[in-house]
Computed example of a mutant assay.
Amino acid sequence: MSKSALNSFSRQCFMELSKYHILVVSFCPGWVRTDMGGENADLDVNESTRTLSANILRLDSRNNGLYFDRFLHPIPN
């Protein structure tokens, strides 16, 4: 439910803020070894954030309002 609420909030922000040219996107960081992801997760935090950081810098207005995996592949929401 929390992911659904986050997606809904992101879409609402996109609709409200696009008139101010503010880019709003959401990312799935992958299955990350955190307290929530657990010790069996595929990625450590550094791997996930390194990929996310590089791809955030590639965003432009065509990406506004979309939901992506960490490789910048759109995920239907």
Rank of each mutant, 00 (worst) to 15 (best):
H73Q: 09
F71L: 03
C13L: 15
L72G: 01
S53L: 12
P74S: 05
Y20G: 01
V25P: 02
I75T: 08
S2I: 08
N64S: 11
L57P: 09
S2Q: 12
S26G: 14
R58Q: 10
L72V: 04
K19E: 10
T51C: 08
R70E: 01
I22M: 10
L66R: 14
S4W: 13
L43E: 04
R62P: 11
G65F: 05
A54V: 14
M36C: 05
T51M: 07
G65W: 02
N40D: 06
M15R: 15
S26W: 02
V45T: 08
L6F: 10
E47D: 09
E39Q: 10
V24M: 04
T34N: 03
P76G: 06
D69S: 04
M15K: 15
C28V: 09
H21R: 09
L57G: 12
N77L: 12
A54G: 14
M1E: 14
E39S: 11
V24H: 04
V24Y: 05
G65I: 03
I22H: 11
S48F: 00
L72P: 00
F27L: 05
N40W: 04
R50T: 06
T51Y: 03
H21D: 11
F14I: 06
V45W: 02
L59Y: 04
I75S: 04
L57A: 13
Q12E: 15
T49I: 13
C28T: 10
V25A: 03
R50Y: 06
S61F: 11
S61V: 12
R58C: 03
L43Q: 01
R62D: 13
G37V: 00
A41R: 04
L59S: 01
L59I: 08
F68L: 08
R33W: 11
G37H: 01
S26M: 06
R33I: 06
R11P: 02
V32H: 00
S10A: 13
M15H: 15
K19M: 08
D42Y: 15
S8G: 15
N40C: 05
S53H: 13
F9S: 15
L52R: 05
V32S: 00
Y20R: 06
N55R: 06
P74L: 01
L72H: 07
E39C: 08
S10N: 11
D60A: 02
V25S: 04
R70T: 00
R11K: 15
